[in-house]
Amino acid sequence: MPLSPKAASCRMRFFRTIHGNEHRNEEWKMRIRLSVLCVMISATGWLSAAGAQDDLAYWQELAKRKLAGFEVTAVAPSPIEGLVELRGTSPRGPQVLYATGDGRYVLAGLLWDVERSVNLTAGVLQAMRRQALERVDLGSAVIHYPASSEGTSRGTLLYFLDPDCPYCRKFHAELPKLTASGIPVSIVLYPNRRLHPQAVATSHAIWCSEDRRAALDRWMSEQSMPVPASDGCRAPLETARLMAETAGVQGTPFFVFPDGRRLQGYRSAEELIAMWRAQKP
C-alpha cells in the first residue's frame, strides 16, 4: 500500500535521524580511539624520556649527534623540575648544561638559587675542576715553590704563567709573600703563542735548566735567558695546554685554588692569601 506524502516524508526523516545518529556514534567512537591512542603515545614518550634522564649512554649518544664538542661524563638531577643536569667537557674545559627529559631543549648558562644567593652552576664546575686536576701528575708539569712556613694542608695554589706576560712579571715579586704565609705554589709554564711567540722558546729554556726555580726567577726579574742543560729537552707544554683546558684558563696570570675556585688577572699577595684562608676544609 503506497504511503501518503506526509507518511513518506516522516519515514525519510526517521531514517535520516537513525543514520545521522549512527554516523555520529561512529565519529565519537573514532574520536575516543584516537584520544586513547594519543594518551598511550604521550605516556610512552614521557616514560621513555623519564627513563632516559639518568641514562648516561643515552645522553652521550645524543650529545655526539646534537652537541658538537660537548662530551657528557655524568648525569645528575637538576634543581629545576623537568630538567636534567649534564656534566661534561668541551674545548673550553668542564661545562654544565641543562636539558629537558627528551633532549629537545638544552640550556647553557648559570643557574642561581636567588633565595640563598648561591650560584649552583659555579659550585658544580668548581667541584668538577678540582676532581679533574686531582688526577693530574703535577710533578711532571710544574715548577714547585714550597711553603717556607708551616700552613694548613690544603694542597697547592696552581698558577698558570706566561714568561713574557708583563702582569706575570709584576706578580712574581709577590710570590715570596705567599710561600712565607704557608701557601705552596705550583707554576705551570703556559706561553701565549699568539701574543708572545718567543715565550715558547723561553719556556723550554727555563724548564730545561738545571735549577728551574732559579732560572724562572732570573728571567722574571732580570730578563736573563737561561741556558738549557740539554739540547733535546722540551717543556711539557702539551700537558700544560690540557691542564689549562681543564681549568678553563683564558689568559695569564691565572690562579686555581685547591677547592676549584679560579682567579684571572693580576692579584696582590694579600688578596690571594685572604682567599686561601677562606677555603672550606
Rank of each mutant, 00 (worst) to 15 (best):
S140K: 12
A235M: 10
M220A: 01
R87K: 14
L56A: 11
W207M: 00
D162K: 06
A68S: 13
G151L: 04
P94L: 04
R11D: 10
L175P: 02
Y105Q: 10
R277D: 13
A122G: 15
D54H: 09
R213H: 01
R33Y: 02
R277A: 08
L97R: 11
P2M: 07
Q60W: 12
L111G: 12
T100N: 02
R261N: 14
R87Y: 01
A99D: 09
D164L: 14
V136R: 00
E26R: 15
W59V: 09
A244I: 12
Q126C: 05
G260Y: 08
L67I: 08
D259M: 09
A274N: 00
L110H: 07
A63M: 07
G109F: 07
D55T: 02
C165G: 12
W112G: 09
L175D: 04
V75S: 02
Y58A: 15
S224P: 03
D231C: 01
A43H: 11
L195Q: 11
D55Q: 04
R154W: 03
K177W: 02
Y159F: 15
R13P: 08
G232I: 03
L107H: 10
M128I: 00
G139E: 08
A43D: 07
L242H: 09
H196P: 09
L83D: 08
A147L: 01
A240M: 09
G232D: 14
L86N: 04
S209C: 03
Y266N: 12
A147Q: 00
R267D: 03
E174T: 05
P228K: 00
A141H: 08
R116L: 15
G69S: 10
T152F: 03
